[in-house]
C-alpha cells in the first residue's frame, strides 16, 4: 500500500496554476491592483464589524482547507486539469467580507511563497479568484435563497453558484487577456469558458460535498456567516 502511494507520486508534481507575470499588461495589472485594493479595504472594514469569537478560527480553517484543496488538480478532459477555487464555499459559509479576506490571503500567499501566480499580476489574480467569484457566488446564492426549502435544494443552489463563480472568474481573465493584447477576446473566450465550464462542475461538486460534511458534522457552523437560511438548519 505504501509503495503504491509512493510510486503513484513519483511522476507527478504540482504545476504552476495561476496567471504568471507577463500574461497581463502593466496597465491592466495596475488597474486590477487598484480595484482589488478597494475591495480588500472594504472587506476588512465590514469584517471588523461582523467577526465574532467563533468566526476567528473558522477563517483560519477555511484558508488552510482551500490552500490544501487548490494543490489538488483533478482531470477534466484529455490533457487538461482544474482545481478548486473555493470562493463559493467560503462565501456561503462565512459571508462575502470574510470570504474575500480568506481568498485574498490564499492567492497572495501562493504567489509570494510558492511562486504560483505573478506578483505584478497578483491584483488581477485576486479579482479573478477572490473578488469576482466571491461576489458572484454570494449574489447567486442570495438570489436563490428564498426558494431554498430543504437541504437538497440548498446544496443544489450552492453547486450552481459555485459553477457560475468559476465561469465569471474565467470571463474576467479573458477580458484582462484581451485588454492586455495577449489573446483576442474572440479567440480566448470560447476556450476559457469552455474548459472552465468543466472545471466549474468539479467546483460545484466539491463545494456541495464540503457543505454536506459541515452540515452533518458541525451544523452550528453552517450559519456562522448568516448567509444560509435559518429554516434549513433546524
Amino acid at each position: 500500500m505504501t509503495r503504491i502511494y509512493w510510486n503513484l507520486f513519483r511522476a507527478t508534481g504540482i504545476r504552476p496554476l495561476h496567471a504568471p507575470d507577463g500574461f497581463f499588461s502593466i496597465a491592466v495589472s495596475s488597474v486590477s491592483w487598484g480595484v482589488a485594493a478597494i475591495f480588500i479595504f472594504a472587506a476588512l472594514r465590514v469584517a471588523g464589524r461582523q467577526l465574532n469569537e467563533r468566526m476567528v478560527p473558522a477563517l483560519g480553517v477555511f484558508a488552510a482547507f482551500i490552500f490544501a484543496a487548490q494543490m489538488f488538480n483533478f482531470p477534466v478532459a484529455a490533457g487538461t486539469s482544474g482545481h478548486l477555487v473555493g470562493a463559493a464555499l467560503a462565501a456561503i459559509v462565512l459571508g462575502p467580507a470574510a470570504a474575500l479576506i480568506v481568498m485574498v490571503a490564499v492567492v497572495s500567499f501562493q504567489a509570494v511563497m510558492f511562486q504560483d501566480g505573478g506578483l505584478v499580476v497578483m491584483g488581477a489574480n485576486m479579482l479573478n479568484m477572490a473578488v469576482i467569484p466571491v461576489f458572484v457566488a454570494y449574489g447567486v446564492f442570495r438570489a436563490g435563497r428564498p426558494f431554498v426549502r430543504s437541504h437538497g435544494s440548498l446544496i443544489g443552489l450552492a453547486g450552481a453558484a459555485a459553477w457560475l463563480s468559476v465561469e465569471a472568474g474565467a470571463l474576467a481573465a479573458t477580458v484582462q487577456l484581451s485588454l492586455s493584447g495577449t489573446s483576442p477576446f474572440s479567440v480566448a473566450a470560447p476556450a476559457m469558458l469552455g474548459v472552465h465550464a468543466l472545471i466549474g462542475i468539479g467546483e460545484g461538486l466539491i463545494t456541495a460535498a464540503a457543505l454536506t460534511v459541515v452540515y452533518n458534522s458541525r451544523r452550528e457552523l453552517f450559519r456562522i456567516g448568516r448567509v444560509v437560511p435559518e429554516a434549513v438548519v433546524k
Binding site: R15, P20, D21, S81, G82, S183, V195, I199
Partner: peptide, 28 residues
C-alpha cells in the same frame, strides 16, 4: 492527496498553450 494531483496543465495554462501565448509568461 496533493502529490496524486493530475500533472496536466490546468484550464488557463491549457488555453495559453493552445492559443499560443504561454510564452508571454515570465518566471518569478
Amino acid at each position: 492527496i496533493a502529490p496524486l494531483a493530475s500533472p496536466d496543465p490546468d484550464g488557463l495554462e491549457r488555453v495559453a498553450e493552445d492559443k499560443g501565448f504561454i510564452e508571454e509568461g515570465d518566471d518569478a
